[in-house]
C-alpha cells in the first residue's frame, strides 16, 4: 500500500516564529490548471501590526551589526536556498512553471542573494563620501538604514521578486515586513523557513500572505513604518500608497521591474532604502608652525 503523504501547512512568519494569522482566516489559491495550492493564511491588519512591532524590535540589533556580519548572513541564506533548491523548484512547478523556468528562477534567486551579500560591506565605500569642506573640519557622509520597510512583493513571481526586494533592504541594515504574492504564495513561506535556518535574527524579515489590497493601507499608514517598496505597475495602488505615506513622510519606492532580468539588481536598490548621515568634527592645527597660532 502506498504511503500517505504528509501535507505542508503554510503559516506566516513574524518575529522569527511561524504563527497562523490572528484572524484565523485562510484562502486557497489555485494554479492555472485549477489545482488548489493549499490553504494559505489570509493575514489581517493586526498581523501587519504585529509584524511591524517585530521588525521595529529587530531593527536596532540588525542595523548595528557589522556590515561584514550581515554579508555573512546573506550568503548563508543563499547557501540554505541552494540546499533546498528541489523543494522550491517543485513549488514553482505546482504554481504553474515549467521545470526549466522553475530551475532558472531558483538559480537567479540564489545568485541574487550572493550578489547582495557581497554589497553589505561595500555600500559605504562606494556611496559614502569624505567632503572637503572649506573650514577646519573633517566631514564625511555615510549611508544608514532607514528603519522598518514595508514591502509589497512582486505579484507575478513567487520567489525571485520577493528575494530581489528583501535582499537589498536587509543588506542595508533595515528590517522589513513583506506581503507575498497573493496568487503565488508558496515560495514565500518556504523562503521564510530558509531565513529561519540561516542565522537571520527573528523579526528582521517578516512575511505575510493574503491580500495586498487589504494589507496595503494598514502598512502604508502605519506611523512606525519608514519606507514602502512597491513592485507593481498599478498606478491607482501606487497613488494610494503615496498618499497614505505622507503622514509620516515614508520614503516610497516603486520598482515595476522584471526581476528575472540580470540588470534588476544594483547598489541603488540598497541605498534607496537608506538615509545619508553627514558628520562634522573640528580638526585642530596644533603648534606654533601655522600662521594662525
Amino acid at each position: 500500500m502506498a504511503r500517505l503523504e504528509v501535507l505542508k501547512t503554510y503559516k506566516i512568519y513574524i518575529g522569527g516564529a511561524f504563527p497562523r494569522t490572528e484572524s484565523g482566516r485562510y484562502y486557497t489559491p489555485k494554479n492555472t490548471k485549477g489545482e488548489a495550492l493549499g490553504n494559505v493564511c489570509l493575514s489581517s491588519r493586526k498581523d501587519v501590526r504585529n509584524a511591524v512591532v517585530a521588525a521595529r524590535k529587530a531593527f536596532g540589533g540588525w542595523s548595528e551589526r557589522a556590515a561584514f556580519n550581515r554579508g555573512q548572513i546573506l550568503y548563508r541564506i543563499g547557501e540554505m536556498l541552494e540546499g533546498r533548491k528541489a523543494q522550491f523548484v517543485e513549488e514553482l512547478q505546482l504554481q504553474g512553471a515549467t521545470t526549466a523556468k522553475a530551475e532558472k528562477e531558483v538559480n537567479a534567486a540564489i545568485d541574487r542573494l550572493v550578489y547582495y551579500a557581497g554589497w553589505c560591506d561595500k555600500v559605504s565605500q562606494v556611496s559614502g563620501s569624505v567632503n572637503p569642506v572649506a573650514s577646519s573640519h573633517f566631514n564625511f557622509s555615510v549611508n544608514e538604514p532607514t528603519g522598518v520597510v514595508g514591502i509589497l512583493a512582486d505579484q507575478s513571481t513567487s520567489l525571485i521578486g520577493l528575494v530581489s526586494q528583501i535582499a537589498p533592504v536587509i543588506a542595508g541594515g533595515s528590517t522589513c515586513v513583506c506581503i507575498a504574492s497573493e496568487d503565488l504564495p508558496l515560495c514565500a513561506i518556504t523562503f521564510a523557513e530558509v531565513l529561519n535556518s540561516s542565522d537571520v535574527p527573528g523579526g528582521v524579515v517578516n512575511i505575510l500572505t493574503g491580500s495586498p489590497d487589504e494589507m496595503m493601507k494598514p502598512m502604508a499608514t502605519h506611523m512606525d513604518v519608514n519606507a514602502i517598496v512597491y513592485a507593481g505597475k498599478d498606478a491607482t495602488m501606487l497613488n494610494s500608497i503615496q498618499e497614505f505615506a505622507v503622514e509620516n513622510l515614508k520614503r516610497v519606492r516603486n520598482y515595476p521591474q522584471d526581476w528575472m532580468d540580470s540588470g534588476a539588481q544594483g547598489l541603488h536598490y540598497i541605498t534607496d532604502l537608506m538615509e545619508l548621515k553627514t558628520t562634522w568634527h573640528p580638526i585642530e592645527n596644533i603648534g606654533g608652525a601655522t600662521s594662525s597660532y
Binding site: S136, H137, P282, I283, E284
Partner: peptide, 12 residues
Amino acid sequence: SQSPRIDKVGVE
C-alpha cells in the same frame, strides 16, 4: 591633570 579640555577650533 583634570583641568578642563579646550577645543582649539572652537576657540578660534
